[in-house]
């Protein structure tokens, strides 16, 4: 290409921007790895934290994290699925209610996580009397991931071949039978992707958890115990514990790996949905 000098400069600027952004991110990862990789081992994952997290591992914290995620997904998945089915099945003609609900969901999706934290503290911890517990934290996160999950599943249901819907109706199948045997299985990749996105977002969350599920780093014995999530652990180690940086970095590596896995799975699942549609 014989390009004019201004054009050449513009291209260089784009390259420069992309390279510098990539370099900063590489810098971040290298720092994390340099600081945390030494502490990362199988023992780190399987032993309990000691000395406020400076020593030992993150076993109880991983368990708390998984329990909180379990509660969040266990509540958000069925409610979200139902809501998505309703939006997809009963609001096809348009109509005000569906539009208003979607608007409310979009508003909810953009809400800062700290606001979810405040709500969770006021509603679950205080009003419902659940206190600082894994249950409070999980329910707060369920509220937080619900809107994104609903919209992802709704989009997936909308992408399901209409021929199947009409075919099921023409065979005299009930709506619930068509959903259970044809529509939901066909939308399974979207449902999986929505779940993974939600899990990724929930696992990364800190602000919504510090005053709902709390700080306690002991191994939780029940859902009504307080439990410290991995993200909260990183926050606490780096802000409140002198000499906690190494373990904070190691925990951050574990958390990034967890979230990256969830996101990759989400991408793979939605891609499967796409190819399946193209195969028809």
């Amino acid at each position: 290409m014989h390009s004019v000098p201004g054009d050449r400069l513009f291209g260089l600027a784009l390259w420069g921007a992309a390279l510098s952004v990539a370099a900063v991110f590489a810098w971040l990862f290298v720092d994390l790895a340099r600081l945390g990789l030494g502490a990362l081992s199988w023992d780190f994952i399987t032993t309990a934290p000691e000395n406020a997290g400076r020593d030992g591992g993150i076993a109880s914290i991983l368990v708390s994290t998984l329990l909180i995620l379990g509660v969040a997904v266990g509540v958000a998945a069925p409610v979200g699925l139902g809501a998505a089915v309703w939006l997809n099945t009963y609001t096809r003609a348009g109509g005000g209610t569906g539009r208003r609900i979607r608007l409310a969901l979009d508003g909810l999706a953009g809400m800062p996580s700290i606001v979810f934290g405040l709500f969770g503290n006021a509603f679950f911890s205080v009003y419902l009397g659940l206190g600082f517990s894994i249950l409070s934290g999980g329910l707060t996160l369920a509220a937080m991931i619900l809107p994104v999950f609903i919209r992802t599943v709704e989009a997936g249901l909308g992408a399901v071949d209409d021929g199947w819907r009409r075919g099921a109706a023409a065979l005299g199948l009930t709506q619930s039978a068509a959903l259970a045997h044809v529509i939901l299985p066909a939308a399974a990749p979207a449902i999986g992707a929505g779940l993974m996105l939600g899990i990724g977002r929930a696992a990364a969350e800190t602000a919504a958890l510090i005053f709902t599920s709390g700080y306690v780093d002991r191994m939780p014995e029940s859902l009504s115990d307080s439990g410290r999530a991995l993200a909260v652990h990183i926050y606490d180690l780096s802000m409140n514990v002198a000499g906690g940086d190494t373990h904070a970095a190691a925990s951050a590596l574990v958390l990034v790996a967890l979230v990256a896995c969830a996101n990759l799975l989400a991408v793979a699942l939605s891609r499967r949905l796409l190819t399946r549609r193209l195969a028809l």
């Binding site: 810098w27 971040l28 720092d31 994390l32 600081l35 990724g200 696992a203 990364a204 969350e205 800190t206 993200a231 909260v232 990183i234 926050y235 780096s238 802000m239 940086d245 904070a248 970095a249 951050a252 958390l255 990034v256 979230v259 990256a260 969830a262 996101n263």
Partner: peptide, 14 residues
């Protein structure tokens, strides 16, 4: 997808 607390941690330490 990187959690904000990780960005914060890196900002704080580096």
């Amino acid at each position: 997808g990187v959690p904000s607390v990780v960005y914060g941690f890196w900002g704080l330490t580096v």
